[in-house]
Design a protein around this nucleic acid. Structure first.
Lengths: 311, 311
DNA sequence: TTACTATTTTTGTCTAGGACAATATTATGA
DNA sequence: TCATAATATTGTCCTAGACAAAAATAGTAA
């Protein structure tokens, strides 16, 4: 019925796709795409179809493809690439297709119940590594192949968030060590990775202080001080430019006192080449567990510091 | 100890403050602030102190002040303005200072318990209108006066989120009417307003499908279709430019079929002057309750539509 | 072949200065 | 006092060029 053709201005496209204005303009010149229409003021006006294609391109780029290979391509050529994506080789529990079906059937409540059941059946650690992680990948890949829509992904994220939050709430207990501040830097708005990290850390008895996403760097310092945390954990998704990850970590490291450890994890960190000085980079979630154990061993005692001659 | 002077590039400042690059450059020329240092490549390098001041200015602007009156001002002059902010005249339950104290004492767990208790004492409706809403305002004002830090606000948001989510989970039941899709548009990342709306709507027996924040406009349409919702609710915070609210609503309205109602709420909507065609604008949360009642009255029957001659 | 280094290409973001419509403010008249 | 017209403010858009960081490629040695 109402099928007005939606057009986006360049700021709208930036918001919808996550691709910066500068990049959009320079792509237009370099690759000949996207070439938007212009309004009477000669300003760019992107039709729906170009925005859709851009969203697709963004995902491919986040997955390691290079612009020169994908930005110029037609939709047909893109599809050829999409099926040549890295196969899912990780081990996982057998019921993933069942979850996918629930997602695509838009059964929010049923999905949540199924996830909770899986959690209780497998236990948190296995649930995260053999259900959630592979499921995340599967959902992402489905999206790429055009088999799943963004809103379905959103609904799925919501349900996982619920299940994890509930579980974490049961694990939470003040006084555990180490005490860990959890957040993301401005620009990183993905909660899921952070939440999975919190679940893992809470499970091995750490005391997590969750600040949510996008805490300004300058706020992390007083937060760490106020909560007297031993460690600050930052999460980075694949959608964030590597350069931003690097500079963000360096800034945070410089701002924080030396005695507070800085750990970084998530898909965005995996893309980093070299190490970052003073920052512990985490790969899979199991790295966190190991790091906590290592921290406990290195840590002198249950107390805060070594008081010579005491007792 | 580690007190390296942190410097931000212009993109970093945009992320940290929410002020666009273009605005930063043009302010520099027009108001003489912020005038950042330059690196060897002549690129802007903003010192910590300027970023702090910018964050302050951003809040003032979100509260209705105009750039010409605040951007040029010194920190001392700013403080004079800050205390002249609109007084909190709304009625509220008496225990707000208690909550504030918990927030500033960084007692996350205790705060959550106190909030839960208030919820059960007052009931959801009163809890939202007489505790949460005024508390939000109070927290915002405290921040303005420099009495509260961003990370404290973050921690507070996390706790409210928990309490509300838990409560909503208890209210959720499939099959209720109307069925409502809840989300925000890209660019709006504040969850709290959306969550408060969901709580209100769930309370009056609506069936809410929560998609989380930042759903692309083009995804809202298939989502509404897949979930067969009667209404789409969008939430806008005060931090979003009015122009963005307007164009976003118009785009969404054009994209959605006519039979799906579009409701918009939040502080960002309150700043709108005129109406937006085909969109129902909500002021306080109580508007939502009234709107649901009105919808039920206008709605022909528990069924989906009028089928003439059926039965 | 593999492994390391040097060169070239790719790519996003920065710079400057100008333009303009949408909004807010002030002036003017009924 | 209220509505309308004139003026000022303000964010975002435009073009076009420059450059460093990252990736790809070529070159060289083991």
């Amino acid at each position: 019925m109402t099928k007005a053709k939606i057009k986006f201005d360049i700021a709208g496209v930036e918001r919808e796709t996550g691709i910066g204005k500068d990049a959009l303009r320079v792509w237009e010149k370099r690759y000949g795409f996207p070439v938007p229409e212009r309004d009477e003021r000669e300003e760019r006006l992107y039709p729906q179809e170009q925005v859709d294609r851009l969203r697709l391109i963004k995902r491919l780029l986040d997955n390691g493809m290079r612009p020169v290979k994908v930005v110029g391509l037609e939709a047909a050529e893109l599809n050829a690439l999409l099926n040549r994506l890295p196969e899912d080789t990780a081990q996982h529990s057998g019921d993933l297709p069942g979850f996918i079906e629930l997602i695509k059937g838009h059964q929010a409540a049923a999905l949540r119940v199924a996830l909770s059941r899986a959690l209780l059946q497998q236990g948190m650690e296995e649930f995260l590594s053999k259900t959630i992680s592979p499921l995340n990948r599967l959902v992402g890949e489905s999206w790429m192949r055009g088999e799943m829509r963004v809103f379905e992904e959103h609904l799925y994220s919501e349900q996982i968030t619920h299940v994890l939050r509930d579980a974490i709430a049961m694990l939470r207990h003040p006084g555990y060590t180490p005490k860990i501040l959890m957040t993301t830097l401005p620009g990183e708005e993905h909660t899921l990775g952070l939440l999975m990290a919190e679940a893992t850390l809470s499970l091995c008895g750490a005391h997590c202080v969750m600040l949510g996403v996008q805490t300004p760097i300058q706020e992390i310092v007083p937060a760490a001080k106020a909560h007297q945390v031993d460690i600050v954990v930052l999460s980075f998704s694949a959608a964030i430019p590597i350069l931003q990850v690097k500079s963000g970590l360096q800034l945070a490291r410089d701002a924080l006192p030396k005695k507070v450890a800085l750990w970084a994890g998530g898909a965005g960190v995996a893309k980093l080449r070299g190490p970052v000085e003073g920052v512990q980079l985490m790969g899979p979630l199991s790295d966190l567990t190991r790091a906590v154990i290592a921290w406990r061993e290195a840590s002198p005692a249950p107390g805060k510091s070594i008081r010579p001659g005491k007792g």
